[in-house]
Design a protein around this nucleic acid. Sequence first.
DNA 1: CCCCCCTCCATTTTT
DNA 2: TGGAGGGGGG
Length: 721
Amino acid sequence: MSSNLLLNDLNEHQSIAVSAKPGNMLVLAGAGSGKTKVLVHRIAWLIHQENYSPYSILAVTFTNKAAGEIRGRIESLLRMSTAGMWVGTFHSIAHRLLRAHYLEAGLEQNFQILDSEDQKRLIKRAIQSLNLDDNTWAPKEAQWFINNKKDKGIRPEKIATNADFHTQTMANIYNAYEGLCRQSNLIDFAEILLRAYELLLKNPETLQHYQTRFKSILVDEFQDTNTIQYRWLKLLAHEQNHMVIVGDDDQSIYGWRGAKIENIKKFSKDFPNASTIRLEQNYRSTGAILNAANNLICHNGERLGKKLWSAGATGSPIALYSAFNEIDEAKFVADQVLEWVSKGYSRSDMAVLYRSNMQSRVIEEQLLQAGITYRVYGGMRFFERAEIKDALGYLRLIANQHDDAAFERVVNQPNRGIGDRTLSIIRQAAKENFCSLWNAAVSSIQQNILTPRAKNSLAGFINMIQQMQQYSVEIELYEITERMFQCTGLVEFYSLQKGEKARSKVENLEELVSATKNYSIEEDTEATVLQSFLSHASLEAGETQGSEQQDCVQLMTLHSAKGLEFPIVFMVGVEEGVFPHQMSADEPGRLEEERRLCYVGMTRAMEQLYLTYSELRRQYGREQYHRVSRFVQEMGNDSLVEIRKKIRVQRPISSQNKKFPSNFNHESGLKLGQNVRHKKFGEGTLLNLEGSGSNTRVEINFKDFGIKRLVLSYANLEGFS
DNA sequence: CCCCCCTCCATTTTT
DNA sequence: TGGAGGGGGG
């Protein structure tokens, strides 16, 4: 491949970035400026022009999707396999290091990954093991605390002993949780990064090996790196290698989960010889959209500075629609979709972007009513589904009996008579002997401290796992899975249940078998295929929906829209309190992140951007008036045009009125709002009446006792007026 | 031991 | 308003 070909369809700045002499480089790449293209071409350039071995390249991303895209584009550009190249997410690369150096990292060979749900369960156990109340000490909050500390590289012993009681207790929970993880040979997501960092920090020889191996380190979406990710990258840096970081401070929208926008500035400081290249030419959006986006983002202070421009047409102005209520807003979107479809656009050319997931409901209802197919992004992924996690739980126990998280999950799933009573005895034993639940279960069978029934069931369970474990070394992965389904009765359990839900669960389990059939081990480690598959399942949770729909409107949050583009974009709920969100509006820093989120949303649109807001919105069961978002005004009015529609939509009669029309007559002869007297509670007003005959229930607001629900036939009410 | 009802709560998400 | 989780009852 000639250098010409690699630089052929690049603009001046892209070309400079791609063909620069090897050295540290910061590429500030605006939205739609060909960031991935530069990354991919840079890698190709290093290989072809600078004679870098693919083996010496490390490319890091945040999502599997981005990593896959880089891989695919390199492969099609260079027509070579990327097998020797390290291209992956922070987590997958850190995991790869841990696999290769598990001893130095203080792990056992068969360590497995804990996803956030499992993590929460284990934290809950840690809380209980400290004899703390898990209502006062919410596992969710502790989980946040622990992950937050890990993201900053802080271990429990490093948390000041003179800290306040709350922090102290949290540190204790953190510590106890770490103990449980060690015992079960498990690591959570944050731990993968922290361990990999500590591995390199504590083993200079290993560090040196990778420093000399990776001659070029390329990082995508650098503005999203957190403290530990940055430190890890900095460790890998060396005089003899160089780093190319690509990012956009204006698109930093993950501050709330630890991303440090400052890392970009830190990079320039820590690598003073790094050159900076700006990619400002946008190939995606019309001039009108870019103009408004630029205007908006100028309201943020402390920017590195960047102004998107386009060589293309100005296009039509951004359309602003002021809806009467959220139903009207959704109807407007549906109407416009139909109009664009009639002009020849595909439904999949259009996306509806919203700030929070709950906003999708009304939109979905109206699209459904208009007969428009749609797809909602987000939600359960394949490997996160309960039935899949059950199956994986069994596979994990087969791979490692001391995996407490897996043990807890499947020991009584499907029900085999090992209830909470038995389990708490096992948990107690495990706690006292500092051993895994598995060992505790085995010894409590031997010691005869369980009821015969429980003992039997438990012994059966232990036996079953042991047997499957024995088989597992001889047979293929999919055979292990199929056999596991037979032995555990998991598929049978779901297929005996009725309904659409149960049917899809069985289908998912079958899908898991085909996933195991298709799986082939990616890299050579000492890990077994089973272990490797389990890691794969944890690190790559899979698609949201099993099968891609053909042609449908895309519904997603603004966050999940990052990196995507659509000819037509609807940004809905552009109101104060919704966007910017109420909870982010007060703090200047968080407001700026909301503004960046708005910027990200706008720059998704290629041809036409709609902004809609609703004057009246039903939220949390009450109606509230909203003003248009401050962001709209900040966009300036030279690229905006307001759309008006004549039809006004009335809200349907509220559900309460539907249930009880005004002429409602109950067989009891009682009327809502009527005064009644009760022997014990005295006088009150009848609020509600449900059911009939002996099942009739009443809700009464008593003067002295407040609202009570009673069964009418027992209440002996006396009506009066 | 399971199911139902009540209460409480309510951004954004990847790995 | 609606979903999830906890507690109580059958």
